[in-house]
């Protein structure tokens, strides 16, 4: 996927929208059924947090961008992911799912990922975040959002997600472009660098936070009625698009993440035993060991104006 980053930046700049562009009081909120409501509330909360976590990932990537255009794109993507989280929070408010002014509580795995992002994401090389983010985006785009639109009839939700999906398609375009960009160079050098990075204790902690989050999200989503297969087919899409060119396939991080994707997809694989155990273990993670919620989390809002 070869794109002109300068043209993409111009496109991003000219495609900005605001929460105020959506009529949050328009009819349609009543189309959420009482049966749907509790599951949708949990789903939207997770979705919102994933967007927010993705936003922080882009903020870290902006610090590592190899050129000014890419840096600007990541600065915008950081803001746009935040906009998506804000939009999803506004939808939750429309559907009466917010407890006053409170931001929905993130689950423990999200808390651990937030904590890791806050402490270490700025120290991660671009290759790592640049390979993981497209995976998360494709899962969001291909599975979660589609599921939401298939099950929710509220036209305001459709209107909001039409805008979100437009943004996400640009994020994915740039994401796969960068994935391939990082597949150029001597293979042995890239492989050695990737190996050295995997030995970084900060990254290990990140993996420990990321793996159970993925499995917990899978469990949550399945509980809500999403077919596991649609999540898996989205993950396979990552492998298909990312591996379309030789450069993409040569990127060691693409190889690591797509192979990990195969493990996640295969429910019978031994991989799930320790990771599912980790999910259960994190339920008992002492809350007092959690650091205070970083202030970037407090910037989330459902409001259209400030």
């Amino acid at each position: 996927m070869n794109i002109d980053l300068d043209k993409m930046l111009a496109k991003v700049r000219s495609s900005q929208w605001a929460l105020a562009d959506i009529d949050w009081d328009a009819p349609g909120a009543e189309l959420i059924t009482p049966e749907q409501w509790p599951k949708l509330k949990a789903f939207m909360s997770d979705l919102m947090w994933i967007e927010h976590v993705g936003a922080r990932g882009f903020a870290a990537m902006a610090k590592k961008a190899p050129n000014e255009t890419l840096k600007q794109l990541y600065i915008y993507f950081h803001a746009e992911e935040q906009r998506h989280a804000n939009t999803e929070m506004a939808l939750m408010r429309r559907w009466g799912m917010l407890d006053g002014e409170e931001i929905p509580e993130p689950n423990i795995n999200l808390r651990l990922v937030i904590q890791w992002l806050d402490q270490y994401s700025d120290d991660m090389p671009l290759e790592v975040l640049g390979s993981v983010i497209p995976m998360l985006e494709i899962a969001l785009d291909g599975a979660l959002c589609k599921f939401l639109l298939d099950t929710v009839n509220d036209p305001v939700c459709h209107q909001a997600f039409a805008r979100i999906n437009d943004d996400e398609s640009r994020h994915l375009g740039v994401g796969f472009h960068v994935l391939e960009m990082q597949g150029h160079g001597k293979l042995y050098r890239m492989a050695l660098k990737a190996l050295a990075t995997t030995l970084n204790p900060k990254l290990m902690l990140g993996i420990l936070a990321y793996l159970p989050l993925l499995n917990r999200m899978r469990d949550n989503i399945v509980t809500m009625g999403l077919k596991e297969e649609s999540l898996y087919s989205a993950m396979q899409k990552y492998e298909r698009i990312g591996g379309r060119t030789a450069a993409g396939r040569r990127n060691p991080w693409f190889q690591i993440i797509s192979r990990h994707g195969r493990l996640v997809v295969n429910r019978k694989h031994f991989y799930h035993r320790p990771v599912d155990a980790l999910v259960r273990l994190t339920d008992h993670y002492p809350r007092r060991l959690l650091r205070p919620v970083p202030t970037w989390v407090k910037q989330l809002t459902y409001k259209t104006t400030a």
């Binding site: 605001a18 105020a20 906009r83 804000n86």
Partner: peptide
């Protein structure tokens, strides 16, 4: 620190979707 998307009648719209009036 969000990028400014546009100015509006009542203030400044930033890329995270808010209008700062």
């Amino acid at each position: 620190t969000w990028p400014i998307a546009t100015l509006s009648e009542q203030g400044i719209r930033t890329a995270e979707g808010l209008e700062h009036q």
